[in-house]
Simulated assay, not measured.
Amino acid sequence: MLFALICTDKPGKLQLRADTRPEHLAHLQALNDDNKLAFAGPFLCAEGKPNGSMVVLDAPDMEAARALADADPYAKAGLFEKVEIRQWNWGINNPANG
């Protein structure tokens, strides 16, 4: 089942995001290689700079989704002010239904 991670960065942490980005991308690539990542990308502020993330994971349950979220280098580095995890149904334009 799919889980959407809606992550909000702590204010003033753009440099931490930039410094941690290579490890974060490697983490996402590993999830993708294991068929655990549906898609991901940053939220942007009015100036076009990243200020959060949306990551959609394929996990068996909320506990597994939380474990994957906690393993993200951004989370480990303390980038996020808040992480909301919600079960999600990909209803429209789902490539699995195509």
Rank of each mutant, 00 (worst) to 15 (best):
L37N: 03
P60K: 03
D58W: 05
W90A: 15
C45W: 02
K36M: 08
A18Q: 07
D70F: 06
D19M: 01
L44I: 12
N32A: 15
D72N: 06
G91H: 05
K13H: 14
M1C: 05
K76G: 02
N35R: 01
L14F: 15
H27V: 02
A69P: 00
Y74D: 03
K10L: 15
A96E: 15
K76D: 06
H24I: 11
A77F: 14
E81A: 15
A69F: 09
D58T: 07
G12T: 12
K49C: 04
G91V: 15
A4T: 13
G48H: 08
M1G: 08
P50I: 05
L16V: 10
A77C: 06
I85F: 09
A67S: 13
N93F: 14
E81R: 10
D72P: 01
I85E: 05
L31T: 07
D61H: 01
P42K: 05
A26K: 07
A38I: 13
G41S: 09
A30E: 06
R21Y: 14
V56L: 13
E23S: 13
K36N: 06
Q87C: 03
N51E: 11
A71R: 05
Q15I: 08
R66G: 01
R17N: 05
I6G: 01
F43K: 02
R21L: 15
P42T: 10
D19H: 00
P42E: 04
M54I: 15
I92T: 08
